[in-house]
Simulated assay, not measured.
Amino acid sequence: MRIVIQRVSQASVAIDGKIKSAIGKGYMILVGICRDDTIEDAEWLAKKVAALRVFNDDNGVMNLPITDTEGDILVISQFTLFASYKKGNRPSWLKAAGHEISIPLYETFCRLLENETGKPVYTGIFGADMKVALVNDGPVTICMDSKNKE
Protein backbone atom coordinates (compact mmCIF):
# COMPACT_ATOMS: atom_id res chain seq x y z
CA MET A 1 0.00 0.00 0.00
CA ARG A 2 1.12 3.48 -0.74
CA ILE A 3 -0.24 6.59 0.94
CA VAL A 4 0.29 10.32 0.68
CA ILE A 5 -0.47 12.16 3.92
CA GLN A 6 -1.06 15.88 3.80
CA ARG A 7 -1.47 17.95 6.93
CA VAL A 8 -4.30 20.31 6.07
CA SER A 9 -6.12 23.26 7.53
CA GLN A 10 -9.16 22.11 5.53
CA ALA A 11 -10.07 19.50 2.92
CA SER A 12 -13.15 18.22 1.15
CA VAL A 13 -14.26 15.75 -1.48
CA ALA A 14 -17.16 16.36 -3.86
CA ILE A 15 -18.94 13.87 -6.09
CA ASP A 16 -21.32 15.04 -8.82
CA GLY A 17 -21.01 18.59 -7.51
CA LYS A 18 -22.05 17.69 -3.95
CA ILE A 19 -19.74 17.66 -0.95
CA LYS A 20 -19.47 14.09 0.35
CA SER A 21 -17.06 14.84 3.21
CA ALA A 22 -15.30 17.90 4.57
CA ILE A 23 -12.84 18.41 7.41
CA GLY A 24 -11.01 21.26 9.08
CA LYS A 25 -7.54 20.81 10.52
CA GLY A 26 -6.14 17.30 10.20
CA TYR A 27 -5.00 14.80 7.58
CA MET A 28 -6.09 14.29 4.01
CA ILE A 29 -4.73 10.88 3.01
CA LEU A 30 -4.60 9.41 -0.49
CA VAL A 31 -4.46 5.59 -0.51
CA GLY A 32 -3.24 3.38 -3.35
CA ILE A 33 -3.45 -0.40 -3.15
CA CYS A 34 -1.18 -2.80 -5.04
CA ARG A 35 -2.12 -6.30 -6.21
CA ASP A 36 0.02 -8.01 -3.57
CA ASP A 37 -1.04 -5.91 -0.59
CA THR A 38 -2.50 -7.62 2.46
CA ILE A 39 -4.12 -6.71 5.77
CA GLU A 40 -0.61 -6.51 7.27
CA ASP A 41 0.15 -3.57 4.98
CA ALA A 42 -3.01 -1.78 6.14
CA GLU A 43 -2.20 -2.50 9.79
CA TRP A 44 1.35 -1.16 9.51
CA LEU A 45 0.25 2.02 7.76
CA ALA A 46 -2.64 2.71 10.17
CA LYS A 47 -0.26 2.44 13.14
CA LYS A 48 2.33 4.69 11.47
CA VAL A 49 -0.25 7.34 10.59
CA ALA A 50 -1.72 7.35 14.10
CA ALA A 51 1.71 7.79 15.68
CA LEU A 52 3.13 10.26 13.14
CA ARG A 53 4.13 13.46 14.97
CA VAL A 54 3.67 16.37 12.57
CA PHE A 55 1.35 18.70 14.47
CA ASN A 56 2.82 21.62 16.37
CA ASP A 57 3.11 21.54 20.14
CA ASP A 58 2.91 24.65 22.35
CA ASN A 59 6.47 25.58 21.31
CA GLY A 60 5.67 25.45 17.59
CA VAL A 61 7.60 22.20 17.12
CA MET A 62 6.13 19.34 15.05
CA ASN A 63 5.86 16.98 17.99
CA LEU A 64 2.21 15.89 18.30
CA PRO A 65 0.36 12.99 16.67
CA ILE A 66 -3.15 13.55 15.38
CA THR A 67 -4.46 11.70 18.46
CA ASP A 68 -3.30 14.65 20.62
CA THR A 69 -5.11 17.23 18.48
CA GLU A 70 -8.65 18.13 17.51
CA GLY A 71 -7.73 17.12 13.94
CA ASP A 72 -9.94 15.16 11.57
CA ILE A 73 -9.05 12.56 8.94
CA LEU A 74 -10.21 12.36 5.32
CA VAL A 75 -9.15 9.26 3.33
CA ILE A 76 -9.48 9.07 -0.44
CA SER A 77 -8.83 6.03 -2.66
CA GLN A 78 -6.20 6.82 -5.32
CA PHE A 79 -5.21 3.97 -7.65
CA THR A 80 -2.99 6.33 -9.66
CA LEU A 81 -0.40 6.21 -6.84
CA PHE A 82 0.75 3.01 -8.56
CA ALA A 83 1.28 4.60 -11.97
CA SER A 84 4.12 3.14 -13.99
CA TYR A 85 5.72 5.58 -16.40
CA LYS A 86 8.72 3.50 -17.41
CA LYS A 87 7.66 3.13 -21.04
CA GLY A 88 6.58 6.25 -22.88
CA ASN A 89 4.47 9.03 -21.49
CA ARG A 90 1.13 7.33 -20.96
CA PRO A 91 1.01 5.85 -17.44
CA SER A 92 0.06 2.26 -16.82
CA TRP A 93 -1.75 1.11 -13.70
CA LEU A 94 -1.03 -2.61 -13.98
CA LYS A 95 0.45 -2.68 -10.45
CA ALA A 96 -2.75 -1.27 -8.93
CA ALA A 97 -5.08 -3.84 -7.43
CA GLY A 98 -8.52 -4.46 -8.87
CA HIS A 99 -11.70 -3.73 -6.94
CA GLU A 100 -11.88 -7.25 -5.46
CA ILE A 101 -8.66 -6.53 -3.51
CA SER A 102 -8.76 -2.74 -3.25
CA ILE A 103 -12.21 -2.17 -1.79
CA PRO A 104 -11.86 -4.55 1.19
CA LEU A 105 -8.31 -3.32 1.96
CA TYR A 106 -9.32 0.34 1.65
CA GLU A 107 -12.26 -0.21 4.00
CA THR A 108 -10.03 -2.17 6.38
CA PHE A 109 -7.42 0.61 6.39
CA CYS A 110 -10.11 3.19 7.23
CA ARG A 111 -11.49 1.01 10.03
CA LEU A 112 -8.00 0.33 11.45
CA LEU A 113 -7.18 4.03 11.32
CA GLU A 114 -10.36 4.81 13.26
CA ASN A 115 -9.39 2.20 15.86
CA GLU A 116 -5.80 3.45 16.14
CA THR A 117 -6.73 7.14 16.43
CA GLY A 118 -10.11 6.99 18.13
CA LYS A 119 -11.35 9.45 15.50
CA PRO A 120 -13.92 9.06 12.75
CA VAL A 121 -12.46 8.67 9.28
CA TYR A 122 -14.28 10.57 6.55
CA THR A 123 -14.13 9.24 2.99
CA GLY A 124 -15.11 9.75 -0.60
CA ILE A 125 -16.71 6.95 -2.61
CA PHE A 126 -14.38 4.25 -3.87
CA GLY A 127 -14.05 4.38 -7.67
CA ALA A 128 -16.11 7.56 -8.07
CA ASP A 129 -15.00 10.61 -10.05
CA MET A 130 -14.08 12.78 -7.07
CA LYS A 131 -13.06 16.41 -6.84
CA VAL A 132 -10.69 16.82 -3.90
CA ALA A 133 -9.92 20.26 -2.49
CA LEU A 134 -7.46 21.01 0.27
CA VAL A 135 -5.33 23.65 1.89
CA ASN A 136 -2.01 22.03 2.73
CA ASP A 137 -0.77 23.32 6.08
CA GLY A 138 2.95 23.91 6.25
CA PRO A 139 3.12 22.49 3.65
CA VAL A 140 3.55 19.07 5.20
CA THR A 141 3.31 16.13 2.80
CA ILE A 142 4.63 12.67 3.64
CA CYS A 143 4.65 9.58 1.43
CA MET A 144 4.63 6.11 2.96
CA ASP A 145 4.87 2.73 1.28
CA SER A 146 4.28 -0.46 3.25
CA LYS A 147 6.78 -2.29 1.02
CA ASN A 148 9.50 0.32 1.64
CA LYS A 149 9.44 0.97 5.38
CA GLU A 150 11.82 3.91 5.66
Rank of each mutant, 00 (worst) to 15 (best):
T80R: 12
A51E: 11
K20P: 07
T69F: 01
N56G: 11
T69L: 03
G60H: 06
D72R: 05
L30H: 11
I33E: 00
S77E: 00
N59M: 08
N63Q: 03
I66D: 01
G60E: 02
I33S: 12
T67Y: 01
W44K: 12
F79L: 13
A22K: 09
A22N: 01
D36P: 04
K25R: 12
I66G: 08
V49D: 00
C34V: 04
I33P: 13
V61I: 13
D41G: 15
D37H: 08
L45F: 01
A42K: 03
F79K: 12
L45P: 07
V61L: 08
K25T: 14
E43C: 09
L52M: 15
D68A: 15
A42T: 08
K18Q: 12
L64N: 14
G24R: 07
L30R: 09
S84H: 07
E40G: 12
I66M: 08
D68T: 10
M28D: 08
A51K: 11
D57P: 07
K20M: 10
K48P: 00
I76Y: 00
L52T: 11
P65Q: 07
K86I: 09
D72K: 12
I76H: 02
Y27M: 05
T80W: 00
I29A: 09
K20G: 07
I39R: 13
G26L: 04
D72S: 12
A42F: 02
V49N: 01
V49Q: 05
F82R: 13
D58Y: 03
R53F: 03
M62E: 10
S84R: 07
S21A: 10
C34Y: 05
A42L: 05
K18N: 10
A51F: 02
Y27P: 04
Y27I: 02
E70C: 06
G24Q: 08
R53C: 12
S21W: 04
A42R: 01
V54R: 14
Y27E: 01
N56E: 15
A42W: 03
V49L: 07
I23E: 00
K25L: 14
A46R: 06
V54C: 12
S21F: 07
D36K: 06
L81K: 06
D41H: 13
I33V: 13
Y27N: 08
K86T: 11
N59K: 15
E43Q: 14
M62Y: 13
T67K: 15
D36Q: 07
I66F: 04
S77I: 05
A51P: 02
F82E: 09
F55S: 15
D37S: 13
D36R: 06
G26V: 05
G60Y: 01
V75W: 00
I73T: 09
I76W: 03
L45G: 04
K86G: 15
W44R: 11
T38C: 14
F82D: 13
R35S: 12
D37Q: 09
N56F: 06
W44L: 15
A83F: 05
N56S: 15
M62P: 13
